[in-house]
């Protein structure tokens, strides 16, 4: 697992990820500001890894991008267009999200988990939704498991279904909220490789992660956050090998 090039892999679909820009994004729960004036630019088809200690506002940042939690001030630009001016339901069709705890629908099979939003949000016919869902499941290596319910799948398989479910909506950006934190250790690599594959195929990704190896290997940009602010951002080598701030140095010494 040495090189990760950002050239498309032969024989597979490529994605057309959109650009994303955060401008002075501030988010609050009640009166408490958990994110203050966060700005970053994410080029199309690149991967940005967000690292930082718990309580640094990483997950809140992702929820601000797709407006699962409404920003207090600032702006999010998706492909140059203000996300705050787009209806949330429309915006979220363009931004896929993968959660730490998968959040699969427990009473649906893997196939139906993927097909549900294709039918009910995209309005595809049952046959077409099923066909697309099958293709997506095959992509994440779960063609054989399409009739299983989530509880009959391992954590790694569930997370791959969740990724297929998000990809099926053909998003321009994918958000990953600690997607491997709840997995058994031997299953982490499979999911990370899958994510690296998406990055290589041109998806724009924002990845909140504690997997420093992944961040170093796959990210085009790493952002270190603490206490709701961006402390340091830059190329992975720069951040991991030459951390500038004390806080990042301390954080790295604790996690590496």
């Amino acid at each position: 697992m040495s090189t990760t090039t950002h050239t498309p892999v032969a024989g597979l679909d490529t994605y057309r990820g959109s650009s994303l820009e955060l401008r002075d994004l501030t988010m609050a729960y009640g009166d408490i500001e958990v994110l203050r004036n966060v700005s970053m630019t994410i080029a199309p088809g690149t991967t940005t890894c967000i690292i930082g200690p718990s309580g640094s506002g990483k997950s809140t940042l992702l929820r601000g991008i797709n407006r699962l939690h409404e920003p207090k001030s600032g702006d999010v630009l998706l492909a140059g267009e203000s996300a705050l001016g787009i209806k949330p339901d429309i915006l979220r069709r363009r931004i896929g999200m993968v959660f730490q705890h998968f959040n699969l629908f427990p009473d649906h099979t893997a196939l139906d988990n993927v097909a549900l939003s294709l039918r009910k949000v995209k309005g595809l016919s049952k046959a077409e939704a099923t066909a697309r869902a099958r293709a997506r499941l095959a992509e994440v290596g779960l063609a054989e498991r399409s009739d299983h319910r989530p509880r009959d799948l391992s954590g790694g398989q569930q997370q791959r279904v969740a990724i297929a479910r998000a990809l099926a909506m053909e998003p321009e950006v994918m958000l990953f909220d600690e997607a491997t934190s709840a997995l058994d250790p031997e299953l982490v690599k499979g999911v990370l490789n899958l994510m690296a594959g998406l990055a290589a195929r041109g998806m724009t990704m924002v990845v909140v992660t504690h997997e420093m190896g992944f961040a170093r290997r796959v990210a085009d940009q790493v952002v270190f956050m603490d206490e709701g602010e961006v402390v340091e951002a830059g190329k992975p080598d720069q951040l991991f090998d030459h951390p500038q701030s004390d806080r990042l140095r301390r954080f790295l010494s604790e996690v590496l």
């Binding site: 697992m1 040495s2 090189t3 990760t4 090039t5 892999v9 597979l12 992509e139 994440v140 290596g141 063609a143 509880r151 009959d152 391992s154 790694g156 398989q157 058994d184 031997e186 299953l187 690599k189 499979g190 490789n193 899958l194 690296a196 594959g197 998406l198 290589a200 195929r201």
Partner: peptide, 29 residues
């Protein structure tokens, strides 16, 4: 739950399966 009891399977089986099936991964894994 309705889960039928099944024999324990090693998580490593899944790793093997994944290595064999994943078409997404660039480079060698």
């Amino acid at each position: 739950g309705r889960r039928r009891p099944s024999a324990p399977t090693s998580g490593l089986n899944e790793v093997n399966e994944l290595n064999a099936a994943t078409p997404l991964t660039p480079g060698s894994n």
